[in-house]
Amino acid sequence: MNPVTKRPLDASKGAEQSEETFSLAALRQGDAAEFARLVDAYSGMIYRLASRMLQNPQDAEDVLQETFIKAYKALPAFDGRSKLSTWLYRIATNEALMLLRKKTLPTVSVNAPLEDADPEGFELEIVDWCCLPESELMSEEARRYLDESIEALPETLKSVFVLRDLEGLSVRQTAEVLGISEGAVKTRLHRARLALREMLTAYFKERLPASGL
């Protein structure tokens, strides 16, 4: 039997590390210097999120710009109950989802059942590809396939997976960013991971030694 450890997977990187102190009063009053400081502190985080959600540099740049334009306009009404990073993540995620919806409108109805329906009768491919060497698991081609697999996820699963597993937000923060319950975050995250596992299985099984099949 392969050992199954209880060690939690590390999800420590993310916005929590870079939370900085800003003068909310100055930001609300439209202080340009303070806003520039905010932009410099969080533009990298927002660009990374948008790149991962959209897989396209031009789209990521559009989302980055729109996020800070909307943030500047909304700052006078920002009540400070959320962290600034969570609030910015929310604006950026909404912008990215809007762009995705514009681009994928014809396929939304096809993907929708995957997002919330209970996957009764779902199938799992049982192939153990964990034994593949790192050179195969982490090759340039494999990395591209990993990116393409994220792109293939339905948008509601993609946003949860990117925020929770790639950006390292907690379940609570992810729920706050997306405006859904923590239970919904957990359910969608699990479905996203299972869907990605299926896609990776389809890819890596072709790279197993023939003698092992």
Binding site: L9, V127, W129, L137, R143, L146, D165, L166, L200
Partner: peptide, 12 residues
């Protein structure tokens, strides 16, 4: 394979 999937995404 699910654990490996998550690790690959976080690491690579």
């Amino acid at each position: 394979t699910l654990r490996k999937t998550i690790e690959l995404y976080r690491e690579t």
